[in-house]
């Protein structure tokens, strides 16, 4: 006796194939929702903002009168913030990664630091803001200056750099290390001269991604207390400052008072997205140029 009725299977097969086909289309549409939102978002922002972007907008200082307002202060603030964040995260991120990958014995300490880093990555950015407010702004008495914001931001993006650097270090083939040790090189000489140069593309990619996160991040700086008022251009890391996302924030929430503020916010978003686009393109370029050399 046959357990499988071939006719029944054949009859049902059409239905099963149709279900497969329909769901494939649904899955595709679901995936495309992201694209649709992206297009609408870009379209909106460009429609609202593009007309407002001109030389004056980029170079003027802040003003309560929309037609005279500019974002030079925010651009400079973002730049100064990066001048703090880039070296600090690079030192802390790469240092931690080298310690974990090359020096630490695989034991309690190692897994403790590792677990801690992955937990830090999940802490909401606003909590880092509170840490920065309590420790840097008030505790150490920095006030809401670039340095305080930069250090806060550095701790926030640190896990990104650590994880990326660890992956890059792990990808350096063991035979390169062996070659160096075989010449009588010490551990640090090997790391400095062979391992790090081989890992640097991956590390740089991670660093740029971390920086672009810091460029777009708002919440910690709101908590630290970036003034909405007109302030002079920042000239160093000890000056008060504002950044592009903060400018977007203040203009957006005040758009109900002055309608043109929405346009200013959109224009600033365009500038911010262009900055991020440039940073990410650099990261992609580095990644493609140095991909798979071994």
């Amino acid at each position: 006796m046959k357990y499988v009725d071939a006719n029944l299977v054949a009859k049902k097969m059409n239905g099963r194939l149709a279900a497969n086909h329909i769901s494939q289309i649904i899955f595709l549409l679901a995936t495309l929702i992201g694209l649709v939102v992206l297009v609408i978002l870009f379209y909106r922002v460009l429609m609202d903002g593009l007309g407002w972007i001109n030389f004056d907008f980029l170079t003027n200082r802040l003003s309560t009168r929309p037609e005279r307002a500019g974002i030079m202060g925010a651009l400079l603030g973002t730049l100064w913030l990066m001048i703090v964040v880039a070296p600090v995260t690079m030192l802390l991120g790469i240092g931690t990664a080298i310690y974990l990958e090359e020096y630490a014995k695989k034991g309690r300490m190692h897994s403790f630091i590792q677990t801690n880093i992955s937990n830090l990555a999940g802490v909401p950015s606003i909590v880092f803001g509170i840490l920065g407010l309590t420790v840097f702004v008030r505790g150490l008495g920095f006030g809401n200056i670039v340095l305080a914001g930069g250090l806060t931001m550095s701790l926030l993006v640190l896990p990104i750099v650590v994880v990326a650097s660890q992956e890059a270090l792990r990808a350096v083939p063991q035979f390169l290390r062996e070659a160096s040790y075989g010449m009588g090189a010490t551990k640090w000489q090997t790391i400095k001269n062979v391992v790090l140069p081989a890992a640097i593309p991956g590390i740089l990619t991670g660093l740029i991604l971390a920086l672009s996160r810091a460029v777009g991040e708002t919440a910690p700086l709101v908590v630290i207390g970036i003034p909405a008022l007109l302030i002079p251009f920042p000239n160093g890391i000890f000056d008060k400052f504002t950044v592009l996302p903060m400018q977007i924030y203040y203009w957006t929430i005040d758009a109900s008072i002055v309608e043109e503020y929405a346009n200013l916010a959109a224009a600033t978003i365009v500038v911010l997205l262009v900055v991020l686009l440039i940073m990410n393109s650099i990261a992609v370029m580095i990644r493609n140029k140095y991909q798979k050399r071994y």
Binding site: E178, M183, G184, V194
Partner: peptide
């Protein structure tokens, strides 16, 4: 390190540095 300076090694798979 002194030992390895005096005793060179050539490996199974060629392993030049990417330099």
């Amino acid at each position: 390190e002194t030992l390895r300076t005096n005793v060179g090694m050539v490996f199974q798979k060629p392993n030049p540095f990417p330099k």
